[in-house]
Amino acid sequence: MNFDNIWCWLIPLLVGVICAILGYLWGKSNSKTEVIDNSAELKNLNDKNTKLQAELNAAQSKLGAATVTDHTAQLKVDLDTCKGKLKSASATNVVSSLAASGATALAFNAEAAKSAYGKKIKQDDLKIVEGIGPKIEGLFHNFDIKTWKTLSETSIEKCQEVLNSGGERYRIHNPGSWPLQAKMAYEGKWLELVKWQDEHKGGKL
Protein backbone atom coordinates (compact mmCIF):
# COMPACT_ATOMS: atom_id res chain seq x y z
CA MET A 1 0.00 0.00 0.00
CA ASN A 2 1.15 3.44 -0.92
CA PHE A 3 1.02 5.65 2.19
CA ASP A 4 1.55 8.75 0.14
CA ASN A 5 -1.78 8.20 -1.61
CA ILE A 6 -3.57 7.68 1.76
CA TRP A 7 -2.44 11.01 3.10
CA CYS A 8 -3.53 12.69 -0.11
CA TRP A 9 -7.07 11.50 0.60
CA LEU A 10 -7.03 11.71 4.36
CA ILE A 11 -5.81 15.28 4.71
CA PRO A 12 -8.58 16.84 2.50
CA LEU A 13 -11.14 14.69 4.30
CA LEU A 14 -10.00 15.90 7.73
CA VAL A 15 -9.96 19.49 6.52
CA GLY A 16 -13.54 19.08 5.21
CA VAL A 17 -14.75 17.59 8.49
CA ILE A 18 -13.09 20.35 10.49
CA CYS A 19 -14.62 23.00 8.19
CA ALA A 20 -18.03 21.41 8.52
CA ILE A 21 -17.78 21.38 12.33
CA LEU A 22 -16.61 24.98 12.42
CA GLY A 23 -19.35 26.01 10.01
CA TYR A 24 -21.96 24.33 12.17
CA LEU A 25 -20.64 25.97 15.31
CA TRP A 26 -20.45 29.38 13.64
CA GLY A 27 -23.99 29.10 12.26
CA LYS A 28 -25.33 28.04 15.65
CA SER A 29 -23.58 30.97 17.28
CA ASN A 30 -25.10 33.44 14.77
CA SER A 31 -28.52 31.87 15.22
CA LYS A 32 -28.41 32.42 18.97
CA THR A 33 -27.30 36.00 18.49
CA GLU A 34 -30.13 36.68 16.11
CA VAL A 35 -32.67 35.14 18.47
CA ILE A 36 -31.41 37.26 21.33
CA ASP A 37 -31.46 40.40 19.21
CA ASN A 38 -34.97 39.65 17.90
CA SER A 39 -36.29 39.09 21.41
CA ALA A 40 -35.00 42.45 22.58
CA GLU A 41 -36.51 44.22 19.58
CA LEU A 42 -39.81 42.41 20.05
CA LYS A 43 -39.90 43.46 23.71
CA ASN A 44 -39.17 47.04 22.71
CA LEU A 45 -41.97 46.98 20.15
CA ASN A 46 -44.40 45.54 22.70
CA ASP A 47 -43.53 48.30 25.16
CA LYS A 48 -44.12 50.96 22.50
CA ASN A 49 -47.40 49.34 21.50
CA THR A 50 -48.58 49.31 25.14
CA LYS A 51 -47.67 52.98 25.54
CA LEU A 52 -49.41 53.95 22.31
CA GLN A 53 -52.52 52.00 23.32
CA ALA A 54 -52.62 53.83 26.66
CA GLU A 55 -52.29 57.19 24.89
CA LEU A 56 -55.05 56.22 22.46
CA ASN A 57 -57.40 55.25 25.30
CA ALA A 58 -56.70 58.53 27.10
CA ALA A 59 -57.35 60.53 23.93
CA GLN A 60 -60.64 58.70 23.30
CA SER A 61 -61.76 59.36 26.88
CA LYS A 62 -61.02 63.08 26.51
CA LEU A 63 -62.80 63.20 23.18
CA GLY A 64 -65.86 61.43 24.62
CA ALA A 65 -65.99 63.81 27.60
CA ALA A 66 -65.61 66.86 25.35
CA THR A 67 -68.34 65.60 23.02
CA VAL A 68 -70.75 65.00 25.92
CA THR A 69 -69.99 68.46 27.32
CA ASP A 70 -70.57 70.10 23.94
CA HIS A 71 -73.87 68.27 23.45
CA THR A 72 -75.02 69.14 26.98
CA ALA A 73 -74.21 72.82 26.47
CA GLN A 74 -75.99 72.87 23.12
CA LEU A 75 -79.05 71.12 24.55
CA LYS A 76 -79.19 73.69 27.39
CA VAL A 77 -79.05 76.53 24.85
CA ASP A 78 -81.82 74.92 22.77
CA LEU A 79 -83.94 74.35 25.89
CA ASP A 80 -83.57 77.98 27.02
CA THR A 81 -84.49 79.16 23.53
CA CYS A 82 -87.62 76.98 23.49
CA LYS A 83 -88.63 78.21 26.95
CA GLY A 84 -88.23 81.81 25.82
CA LYS A 85 -90.36 81.22 22.72
CA LEU A 86 -93.02 79.39 24.75
CA LYS A 87 -93.17 82.19 27.31
CA SER A 88 -93.42 84.80 24.58
CA ALA A 89 -96.13 82.84 22.76
CA SER A 90 -98.11 82.37 25.99
CA ALA A 91 -97.95 86.06 26.78
CA THR A 92 -99.06 86.92 23.26
CA ASN A 93 -101.97 84.50 23.44
CA VAL A 94 -103.12 85.94 26.78
CA VAL A 95 -103.00 89.48 25.47
CA SER A 96 -104.79 88.45 22.28
CA SER A 97 -107.49 86.68 24.26
CA LEU A 98 -108.02 89.69 26.48
CA ALA A 99 -108.20 91.99 23.49
CA ALA A 100 -110.60 89.72 21.62
CA SER A 101 -112.93 89.31 24.58
CA GLY A 102 -112.71 92.91 25.72
CA ALA A 103 -111.77 91.62 29.17
CA THR A 104 -110.45 93.98 31.80
CA ALA A 105 -106.69 93.63 32.07
CA LEU A 106 -106.45 95.34 35.48
CA ALA A 107 -107.81 93.60 38.54
CA PHE A 108 -111.14 94.98 39.77
CA ASN A 109 -111.14 95.90 43.47
CA ALA A 110 -114.79 95.68 44.50
CA GLU A 111 -114.07 96.71 48.09
CA ALA A 112 -112.28 99.89 47.05
CA ALA A 113 -115.15 100.80 44.72
CA LYS A 114 -117.73 100.13 47.43
CA SER A 115 -115.75 102.20 49.93
CA ALA A 116 -115.62 105.16 47.54
CA TYR A 117 -119.30 105.06 46.50
CA GLY A 118 -120.85 103.65 49.65
CA LYS A 119 -122.55 100.92 47.66
CA LYS A 120 -121.68 97.76 45.79
CA ILE A 121 -120.29 98.35 42.32
CA LYS A 122 -120.51 95.70 39.63
CA GLN A 123 -117.48 95.27 37.40
CA ASP A 124 -117.78 96.97 33.98
CA ASP A 125 -121.09 98.57 34.93
CA LEU A 126 -121.18 101.47 32.45
CA LYS A 127 -123.80 103.20 34.57
CA ILE A 128 -121.03 104.18 36.99
CA VAL A 129 -120.18 106.84 34.41
CA GLU A 130 -122.02 110.10 35.12
CA GLY A 131 -124.57 110.62 32.33
CA ILE A 132 -125.07 106.96 31.37
CA GLY A 133 -128.28 105.24 32.44
CA PRO A 134 -129.70 101.78 31.71
CA LYS A 135 -131.04 102.74 28.27
CA ILE A 136 -127.81 104.35 27.11
CA GLU A 137 -125.83 101.44 28.50
CA GLY A 138 -127.96 99.16 26.32
CA LEU A 139 -127.11 101.28 23.28
CA PHE A 140 -123.39 100.90 23.97
CA HIS A 141 -123.82 97.17 24.39
CA ASN A 142 -125.42 97.07 20.94
CA PHE A 143 -122.13 98.46 19.59
CA ASP A 144 -120.16 95.83 21.55
CA ILE A 145 -118.90 98.43 24.03
CA LYS A 146 -119.42 96.50 27.24
CA THR A 147 -116.45 97.26 29.48
CA TRP A 148 -114.89 100.30 31.10
CA LYS A 149 -111.70 99.62 29.16
CA THR A 150 -113.49 99.52 25.81
CA LEU A 151 -115.43 102.69 26.60
CA SER A 152 -112.22 104.44 27.71
CA GLU A 153 -110.74 103.71 24.27
CA THR A 154 -113.84 104.86 22.38
CA SER A 155 -113.70 108.27 20.74
CA ILE A 156 -116.24 110.96 21.63
CA GLU A 157 -117.43 110.90 18.02
CA LYS A 158 -118.15 107.18 18.32
CA CYS A 159 -119.99 107.77 21.60
CA GLN A 160 -122.16 110.35 19.83
CA GLU A 161 -122.83 107.86 17.05
CA VAL A 162 -124.05 105.38 19.67
CA LEU A 163 -126.37 108.03 21.15
CA ASN A 164 -127.69 108.98 17.71
CA SER A 165 -128.64 105.35 17.11
CA GLY A 166 -131.18 105.64 19.94
CA GLY A 167 -133.10 108.47 18.36
CA GLU A 168 -133.72 112.12 19.08
CA ARG A 169 -134.16 111.77 22.83
CA TYR A 170 -130.57 110.52 23.27
CA ARG A 171 -128.83 112.98 20.99
CA ILE A 172 -129.04 115.75 23.57
CA HIS A 173 -126.64 113.96 25.92
CA ASN A 174 -123.00 115.09 26.05
CA PRO A 175 -120.58 112.10 25.99
CA GLY A 176 -117.47 114.31 26.13
CA SER A 177 -116.29 113.02 29.52
CA TRP A 178 -117.46 109.41 29.28
CA PRO A 179 -114.18 107.89 28.00
CA LEU A 180 -112.31 109.81 30.75
CA GLN A 181 -114.62 108.55 33.51
CA ALA A 182 -114.48 105.00 32.14
CA LYS A 183 -110.68 105.17 32.17
CA MET A 184 -110.63 106.14 35.86
CA ALA A 185 -113.02 103.29 36.64
CA TYR A 186 -110.94 100.84 34.60
CA GLU A 187 -107.74 101.91 36.41
CA GLY A 188 -109.43 101.64 39.82
CA LYS A 189 -109.09 105.36 40.64
CA TRP A 190 -112.34 105.39 42.57
CA LEU A 191 -111.71 108.33 44.90
CA GLU A 192 -110.50 110.38 41.97
CA LEU A 193 -113.59 109.44 39.96
CA VAL A 194 -115.97 110.28 42.81
CA LYS A 195 -114.29 113.65 43.30
CA TRP A 196 -114.43 114.38 39.58
CA GLN A 197 -118.15 113.52 39.41
CA ASP A 198 -118.90 115.71 42.43
CA GLU A 199 -117.22 118.64 40.70
CA HIS A 200 -118.82 117.97 37.30
CA LYS A 201 -122.49 117.31 37.77
CA GLY A 202 -124.16 115.71 34.78
CA GLY A 203 -120.82 114.49 33.48
CA LYS A 204 -119.98 117.83 31.87
CA LEU A 205 -116.36 118.83 31.49
Results as ranks from 00 to 15, higher is better:
residue 10 L to D: 05
residue 82 C to V: 08
residue 16 G to C: 10
residue 83 K to P: 00
residue 38 N to K: 06
residue 192 E to M: 10
residue 91 A to V: 02
residue 60 Q to L: 04
residue 4 D to A: 09
residue 5 N to F: 03
residue 84 G to K: 13
residue 127 K to V: 14
residue 39 S to L: 07
residue 29 S to Q: 14
residue 148 W to R: 02
residue 124 D to A: 10
residue 11 I to F: 09
residue 21 I to C: 12
residue 115 S to Y: 12
residue 180 L to M: 13
residue 37 D to N: 09
residue 22 L to Y: 09
residue 135 K to D: 15
residue 123 Q to F: 00
residue 27 G to V: 02
residue 46 N to D: 15
residue 102 G to Q: 05
residue 26 W to L: 00
residue 193 L to N: 13
residue 188 G to F: 01
residue 183 K to W: 03
residue 176 G to Q: 09
residue 97 S to Y: 04
residue 159 C to I: 07
residue 16 G to R: 05
residue 5 N to K: 06
residue 176 G to S: 15
residue 29 S to H: 12
residue 121 I to K: 02
residue 48 K to N: 11
residue 98 L to I: 06
residue 131 G to M: 01
residue 2 N to S: 14
residue 27 G to A: 13
residue 51 K to G: 07
residue 118 G to C: 10
residue 124 D to S: 12
residue 25 L to M: 11
residue 186 Y to D: 08
residue 51 K to Q: 05
residue 184 M to S: 05
residue 138 G to R: 14
residue 82 C to D: 12
residue 12 P to Y: 08
residue 106 L to N: 14
residue 35 V to C: 07
residue 146 K to N: 15
residue 92 T to D: 09
residue 17 V to G: 02
residue 200 H to V: 01
residue 91 A to L: 12
residue 138 G to M: 06
residue 107 A to Q: 13
residue 57 N to S: 03
residue 162 V to L: 05
residue 139 L to Y: 01
residue 107 A to E: 11
residue 66 A to Q: 09
residue 142 N to H: 03
residue 146 K to L: 07
residue 190 W to Q: 07
residue 36 I to G: 02
residue 23 G to T: 08
residue 192 E to D: 13
residue 28 K to M: 10
residue 27 G to D: 03
residue 129 V to S: 01
residue 144 D to F: 11
residue 17 V to C: 14
residue 31 S to K: 12
residue 79 L to C: 01
residue 124 D to L: 12
residue 72 T to G: 00
residue 48 K to M: 11
residue 6 I to W: 13
residue 74 Q to K: 15
residue 88 S to G: 08
residue 24 Y to T: 06
residue 163 L to I: 11
residue 2 N to M: 04
residue 161 E to R: 05
residue 194 V to N: 01
residue 41 E to K: 15
residue 50 T to I: 14
residue 1 M to T: 08
residue 52 L to W: 03
residue 8 C to M: 12
residue 80 D to K: 06
residue 134 P to H: 00
residue 53 Q to H: 08
residue 74 Q to N: 08
residue 91 A to F: 08
residue 103 A to M: 03
residue 78 D to M: 10
residue 116 A to L: 10
residue 32 K to F: 00
residue 66 A to P: 03
residue 205 L to H: 06
residue 65 A to C: 00
residue 60 Q to F: 07
residue 147 T to W: 00
residue 131 G to N: 06
residue 107 A to S: 15
residue 19 C to G: 15
residue 185 A to H: 06
residue 109 N to F: 11
residue 4 D to G: 02
residue 192 E to C: 06
residue 54 A to L: 13
residue 60 Q to Y: 06
residue 47 D to M: 09
residue 1 M to E: 13
residue 71 H to E: 04
residue 50 T to S: 07
residue 181 Q to K: 09
residue 139 L to F: 03
residue 3 F to S: 13
residue 197 Q to A: 10
residue 101 S to K: 14
residue 29 S to M: 11
residue 133 G to L: 00
residue 17 V to N: 11
residue 30 N to L: 07
residue 117 Y to G: 09
residue 22 L to A: 10
residue 171 R to C: 10
residue 205 L to G: 03
residue 136 I to W: 01
residue 67 T to H: 04
residue 175 P to W: 02
residue 65 A to N: 08
residue 20 A to P: 00
residue 119 K to T: 15
residue 123 Q to L: 05
residue 194 V to E: 14
residue 161 E to V: 07
residue 66 A to W: 02
residue 111 E to M: 08
residue 203 G to W: 04
residue 163 L to C: 08
residue 45 L to T: 13
residue 136 I to P: 02
residue 70 D to N: 05
residue 170 Y to H: 12
residue 5 N to Q: 10
residue 121 I to G: 04
residue 111 E to N: 15
